[in-house]
């Protein structure tokens, strides 16, 4: 009899197949729906607090010195440039050796799209993450003579000037990004907030 039933299977496939397909599709849909909480749990848990501005006390920062603050989990270099440093940044020979001297690539807020790449010329503020592969560049101060100040990346030798602009002929493609920042008082710098009337979404910067 089983044999007989097996032959009926081949003679009337229509309805069973249809019912089977609908049921199978229903099961598959349910299984997919089950995946929702799994996928949800993998969503990056952006901590809202990381986006709050960070106040940095710069009262102890001497000219020619650099300090590192933490903003959104990234190192931020705050450099107090000497008048010589500033003069150097406008040196034609240096500018000729830069990949993007005018900061045309979006790596900074509009109020830092200038020759010193910052809100006030005295303070340079950069996210200290090399645009090549993400190492933290090392600051080298100007020590007079030919030793001009710069940033060297320890990983693949990329070089940046004291405005965070990348030199030609190194692997890094872009200038160091500038975070939104504002000088709230002569001794206090606020990272993550733009000056009044300005705004900058840091996540909009160009990255490879």
């Amino acid at each position: 009899m089983t044999d007989h039933s097996d032959t009926t299977e081949s003679t009337e496939p229509g309805r069973r197949d249809f019912l089977g397909m609908v049921t199978t599709a229903g099961v598959a849909a349910g299984a997919c729906a089950c995946a929702v909480p799994f996928v949800q749990s993998l969503a990056p848990q952006d901590s809202a607090s990381a986006h709050l501005p960070v106040d940095v006390d710069i009262s102890k920062l001497a000219p020619g010195q650099q300090m590192t603050a933490v903003w959104q989990g990234k190192p931020v270099f705050i450099l107090r440039r000497t008048p010589e440093d500033l003069k150097q940044l406008q040196d034609a020979a240096l500018v000729a050796d830069l990949r993007d001297p005018d900061s045309s690539v979006l790596q900074q807020p509009s109020y830092a799209k200038n020759w010193h790449r910052s809100f006030v010329p005295e303070y340079g503020v950069y996210v200290g993450v090399c645009t090549h592969l993400g190492c933290v560049p090392v600051y080298e101060a100007t020590t007079g003579g030919d030793n001009k100040g710069r940033y060297n990346c320890p990983c693949h030798g990329s070089k940046f000037d004291l405005a965070g602009r990348v030199r030609k002929g190194v692997p890094a493609p872009y200038n160091l990004p500038v975070p939104p920042h504002v000088l709230v008082s002569p001794t206090q710098l606020r990272l993550g907030e733009s000056p009044k009337g300005e705004s900058f979404d840091f996540s909009s910067i160009v990255q490879i």
Binding site: M1, T2, H4, S5, D6, T8, E9, R15, R16, L19, G20, V22, T23, G26, V27, G30
Partner: peptide
């Protein structure tokens, strides 16, 4: 889904049971 599955199961097993 249960209604569908029961219908499918009944349809399938009818071939065994009805003989």
């Amino acid at each position: 889904l249960l209604v569908l599955a029961i219908a499918w199961k009944k349809k399938t097993w009818k071939r065994v049971k009805s003989q």
